[in-house]
Design a protein around this nucleic acid. Structure first.
Lengths: 143, 143
DNA sequence: CGGCATCCGTTCCGATACTG
DNA sequence: CAGTATCGGAACGGATGCCG
């Protein structure tokens, strides 16, 4: 067994043009920013996939108010969440995952599964390569 | 029909913890950078999922030499591609998609499908929201 | 409460020049 | 050919203060 066990027969990208890759990149950089995925998942776990600003904030440790505002705004711009303002004092604003926002959870689940299976491999590879580089650097420094 | 047609019954993230979301974010920001997805797809389309530096460069319009080097290096660090140097003059270096690199194409295909179906919706939402903001800005400017 | 405006350090990335 | 080194602009994102 040399090449026989490899995942070679997969042809998942046969239909994929450069245009597709471009659009996928747009999606990835959209949803691959620092907080979007957390917002989407956080909303998806609530009853009615709905919460107000301060609730979301509490649910996501480490996020700044500025980034919560910013990220919610751009998610709303792209139609992943909807925003509803209630004319009260103090003001109340609720955000809800839209159908579009919910729909992306399906392909995302594929990534979750992949990560669950393969992320340890990635981390091992990273550590291994890093230690090799470290060794080289040390060797260099000796001269 | 108000809420009946919604994609509500989906529960794809039931098993997903905050840790999962964190790892998924790591993956997304890893693969969501400007060029990684292009490199992976580009390699996946070649015979043997393998090509040398200059071939990849030609296949990806707009990429700078610096970013090709950088991106290949970090993909290699994480184990998505392997790097082989041939001791010749002029030097030849070949990169090949690893099993790990190939395996991620499967969940990626889900994203490709999603993008194919839903990206127009996103772009429409974007345009709509932008024009609304534009209208508001103009209204403000009148005073 | 739910923002927005500002400042500011960090990271990203393209352009360019140089090297084994 | 396949890089490395350096620079500089742009974008990201945290901290802080103000405001309806």
């Amino acid at each position: 067994m040399k090449k026989s066990s490899r995942v070679k027969d997969l042809r998942p990208w046969d239909v994929c043009s450069g245009q597709d890759a471009g659009d996928v990149r747009d999606l990835l950089s959209r949803v691959g920013d620092k907080w979007s995925i957390f917002l989407i998942v956080s909303l998806s776990k609530r009853p009615d996939q709905r919460a107000r600003f301060s609730e979301i904030e509490k649910g996501i440790p480490g996020i700044s108010q500025r980034m919560l505002t910013t990220t919610l705004k751009s998610l709303a711009r792209d139609g992943f969440v909807s925003r509803e303002v209630f004319p009260e004092v103090p003001p109340r604003v609720e955000y809800e995952l839209t159908d579009l926002g919910r729909s992306i959870l399906i392909p995302m689940q594929g990534l979750v599964n992949w990560v669950g299976q393969n992320w340890p491999t990635v981390k091992k590879s990273r550590a291994k390569k890093d230690s090799e580089v470290e060794a080289k650097t040390v060797r260099k420094r000796q001269f």
